[in-house]
Structure formats: C-alpha cells, structure tokens
Design a protein around this nucleic acid. Structure first.
Lengths: 342, 342
DNA sequence: TTGAAAGCGCTAACAT
DNA sequence: ATGTTAGCGCTTTCAA
C-alpha cells in the first residue's frame, strides 16, 4: 500500500514562469505555431522535456471543442471479424492521432442506445459503428447527425443514418457460395439463415434463393432454416436435416461460427465430408483452415472494412462534411476441402 | 454531402437561464446532490430532458480532475485470450461508469512506450496493462506511479511496477500439461517454448523441465526448442522433430496458436494423433474443440483475468491507495482427443 | 514575434 | 437550499 503522492501536474504555466514568458507563447511553441521564433520553440521544448510536461488532452479538448477521440460501437469483440475490424480501426485512428474509445453492445439494442449516449457525452469527434442484428430504429444516432458529428457504419449499416458506409455484397456472397456447391454437383442445397430482422442476413438468404432458382433447383422449405445462429441452432439444424428422407447434399451456413458447428455436428453424426455433404460458410475464421476437412468459406475483409471506415470518417471530420458514400469491399471465395470436387 | 449544422451544444447555463436559477444549482441537481430540493431536481431534470442536454464529460473531467476513463494496453486483440480479457475489462468498467480507451502494442515495446504517453495525456484514472513479450525496462510506467495513478497488470506483468497483478501459475500450467502426457505413457516429450525474454514463457519452460525431471525422464536438448511461436516456427519445429531418429511421442506447445499449427503440421506429415503423438497446448482457443483430433489444452481464464484486473484497479482508484496484491487465477486442464489414453 | 485576457462547460469552496 | 465566484489547463482572438 502506497499513499497517493500529491505531485501536481506540470502545466504550460509552469513552463511559462520558468522562462518568464506568457502561457500563450508556450502553447504556441509546443504546437509549432509558425509565428514563434525557433529560438523560443527550442527553449520551451527543452524546459517542457526537463519538467516532464505532458499535454493535458482534457483541457485541450475543452478549449478546442475537439477531442481527437473516435468512438467505436461494435456487437462483440469475440468474433474474429470484429477483432480484425477493430485492429484496422485502431491502426488508422492512431496513425492519424486519434484515440479510440470502444464499446460492445453484445447484440443488445438497449446497450447500443446507451453507448451512443456515452459517446455523445464524451464528445467524440466521430463514430464508427456496426449495428446489432436487431437494430431497426436508428433515432439514437440523430444527436450526432444534428451536430454534424460524422457516423461511419460498416457491415451492419443503416442507410437512414447519413455518413460513410462500408459493406460487402452479402447477396453476392451467398449467391457465389451456393453456386459453388451447385457447380460441385450438389442437388439439394440447404441454408442455415440468420435472423430476418437483419438486412445482412436477408441479403444472404436472397442470394441463396436466387442461386437455386437460376440453376433450376427447387427451393424446398425444409432446406431453409432461419435462426439466431447460436451453437444450439446449428446443431438442431443438422439434426433436422439429417433425419430428412432427402438429406441435403450441400449446406450454406450464414455465419462462420455456425459453419464450424454444422461441420462438426455432421461429422459426428457419421456424415462423410465432403463426399456425402459439402459445406461452406459465409464468413471465414482462422479455424476453418485447421478443421478436417478444412472448411470452405466466403471471406469478409474485416480488417479492411474497419480501416476504410475510419479513413472515411476522418475525411468527414476534417472536411466538416458528412459524405454518405458507400464503399463496397470485395469478398473472396475460399475453396477448401469441405467443398472440393474429386 | 450535408453541411455541418452549427447547433451549439446545450449547457447547464441554458438550463439555468430557462429556470432562472444558477448554473451551480443545475449542476448539483443533475448530480443528485443531497442539498437540492426534490422539486428543483425534478424541474431541472425535466428541462434538461426537454432541451436535450447531455453532460459534457470533457468539461466535467477537467474541473473534477478525474476522467472516468480507464486506459487499456494489450499486445493484440486478435488472440482469443486478449479478446476475452478485453470483454471482461469492458464489462466491469462500464458497470462502474468508466469508459475504456484501448491501445494495441502489437508486441512492440516502442508502441507500448508511446501508448503510455497517450494514456498519460488523456489523464486516464487508471491503467490496465499486459506487457509485450519483450518488455524489460518498465520506466514508462513511472509517470503513473509517481502521480498515484494505479496500474493493474495481468498475464504478462512486472513486479517492478506497483499495482495489482492478475496472473496464472504458468509453471504449474506447463508442469500439469507435461505430466498429463507422461501419465499417458509418453516417454519422449518435447516442448516448443516461447521467447526466453518473457517470464511467462520461462516459467512454462521450467514447469516442463521439472515435470520431466520429477518423472525421471531425460531432458534432451533437441526436444526443447525456443522460438517466437510464429506459424513458421511451429512448422519448423515439427519438421525438425519428425526427422529425428527418436521422434517425440508427446509435445507441449507454449501457446494455443502454435499448438494448433503443430497438430495440423504433424497430421499432414502423416503422424497419427494421438496414437503416435500426443499434443497439448498451453492456452485454449475455441478452435481446439473443432479440430481433429480435438486438441487438449490448459485453459487460461482470460475473461476472468480482465474482469479482476479492472475490479482491483477500481478499488485502487476509489481508495486512492495503490494495492500491490497478487491474484492467482486457477487454470484448467482440458483433456481432449489429442491426448487421450485408449 | 509575443502578451493579455477571455472563454471552453463544469464543479466546488465559500457565502447567504 | 441556493447563489457567487473562482478555477481546472489549454487555446485563441485581439492588441501591441
């Protein structure tokens, strides 16, 4: 136990006194203001260093009415997609001198609403956001829009909120994945879909349906299961499908995690992969390479999306214009052994 | 493109004018000060709501000399251990009204040093930190210690910095894992160790060595490989070991990721798991359950460690005492098929 | 090139 | 129970 030492922080006033100059000169010198002589700058910086001065960002923010902080609201850090996005966000932010404050919503709309209030109170200069799967109403972003604080959204976005959007074509992702299975020779392709309240998952479902139709395959209702994509949902889906008289011979999983579970469940049910059943997941995780058979996937570029979101956001902050451009990031079909034609 | 609207923020002064009372009364009312009449509080809150007032945390922080922000410095968000820790940190922080600003060091000491400066400038109320594998000198934390700002460290800690420490017994983890393989009948147990500049990995190596010794197994130098645990390192290790006349029949991997790669590499080299080779990794990831054979591991409780770190930190912040207690979190041996006795 | 002074929005000691 | 006032540390007009 050590008592808190009451060493007051060094301020620009301390530096000013030390040099017998005014605080404003010190401030300007430290900020490399053009009108300050090199001599003064050097002296000021030397003393600052000597005294161990560090800018008080709180005071600076208050007086500049700018915090240099970007707020990030994401559903959960646990998913590799978001972890990568966060890395991208972090890196670009830091490289541009922004700090990042982060909140997870855990897919709860209420938490999302709460978090926007926190971000507003913190007076962030901009917001990067991926909505929860359930977010319908986006009124909680109005406060930023009204103040001209830009909000960049990625992946799960709402076009009702102005600001840059970074997305992938989820329809195409599912279409490509489904067609890949069909090209492999699959005749009975099933889809474990996500919640219908999320556009991302609706698009994926549409892509799935259209791929079947374009390839003259019937869409059997029992082959299209919608769920929250929990572990249990995935296991249930496999159980249901494998008890059908006409078992599917191909499965498109709406998420990376459900794909992994489907594959594991099918395997332990004695289904031979990929001979009897091909599987592909929408969303790729590191693990997909390690399982047996390795799991094919459509990769969504998380890192890139996070990176672009902040880049666009900073552009808005700097220009004081809110640009509602849409950036479509390319997806990538990763064919692995779970869907390999022999 | 929308032009930034210049709507000034609502302040307590606006509320004060509206009600013909003083700003301090407003401030007190909003903060539920005991000396303010219920009637006034209600009026103030009603008007605040009406006007869409939101506390300016920047101004509040400056005047209170307290930001309600906790800084977090971690090596990388990509690892599941840190992602979980971050979740724990986030949750406890938010539940206690703290915001969290996060920086990744990417295992770079220089970045770690830079990040401490940022955190200092941001005047965080406390710091949660997991050191890089290479951090030796910890002078960059002195600035916090001197000011009485608590620094809680977890996993990779330095006892040279005062403050709570949340750790696991890495010696025990490796000892337990190694002995588990020995009990299985393994006679030639190898260890892919991490860098010797990190205490965590040194402890693990010691645990490995001692388990061999206590069980009267020789420690052959070629069975103990130290590395940075990159993907390439893991592959190289497998190649080296599998070309030995006396191939190991058990491997203890110093990290979760290296364990997964070792297992995959061994499999594709045609080694039968677990018949010819048992594998266990120190650190568990979701993926360990999904690979074939499922990969045994010693689980390190990331979520719990993050949670405790913040709990202890907040205790220090509130009491204005820096408590250097050490919390040892229990580890868990997860026996899966990669080390299963038949 | 530098200084003086006001102000960012809130809090808190002191007064009433 | 409420008002007055000063101040947190910095930036920024305006003046010199």
């Amino acid at each position: 136990m050590a008592l808190k030492e009451q060493k007051r922080e060094i301020t620009i006033n301390d530096i000013a006194k030390e040099l017998n100059i005014s605080p404003s000169t010190v401030s300007r010198a430290l900020n490399d203001n053009a009108k300050i002589s090199e001599a003064t700058k050097e002296k000021v910086k030397a003393v600052a260093q000597d005294l161990g001065y560090e800018l008080n960002l709180v005071a600076s923010s208050l007086s500049k009415n700018k915090t240099n902080v970007i707020g990030v609201i994401i559903p959960n850090i646990g998913s590799q997609f978001f972890a990568k996005a966060l890395s991208g966000i972090q890196e670009v932010a830091r490289a541009n001198g922004y700090n990042v404050i982060i909140c997870q919503t855990n897919e709860s709309v209420q938490q999302e609403v709460d978090m926007t209030r926190v971000m507003n109170s913190a007076r962030v200069d901009g917001l990067v956001c991926c909505l929860t799967m359930e977010t319908k109403d986006v009124g909680h972003f109005d406060v930023f829009t009204k103040k001209g604080i830009p909000v960049a959204m990625f992946d799960r976005v709402s076009y009702a909120v102005p600001g840059p959007k970074i997305v992938v074509d989820n329809y195409e992702a599912a279409y490509t994945a489904t067609e890949h299975l069909i090209n492999l020779g699959c005749k009975r392709v099933a889809h474990l879909a996500g919640t219908t309240s999320s556009k991302v998952f609706c698009d994926r479902t549409e892509g799935f349906k259209d791929a079947l139709q374009k390839n003259d395959l019937p869409l059997l209702p029992q082959y299209l299961l919608s769920s929250d994509l929990t572990e249990q949902d995935a296991r249930d889906a496999v159980r249901i499908w494998m008890n059908l008289p006409d078992k599917p011979d191909g499965i498109v999983a709406a998420s990376a995690s459900s794909g992994l579970i489907i594959s594991a469940a099918a395997k332990s049910a004695g289904v031979r992969l990929p001979e009897d059943l091909s599987i592909i997941s929408l969303g790729n995780e590191r693990c997909n390479e390690f399982v047996t058979p390795s799991l094919s996937a459509v990769d969504m570029p998380g890192y890139d999306m996070g990176k672009s979101a902040v880049e666009q956001l900073i552009k808005c902050i700097k220009s004081e214009k809110v640009d509602s451009s849409i950036t479509l990031k390319p997806i990538q079909l990763l064919i692995r052994n779970s869907s390999f034609k022999h």
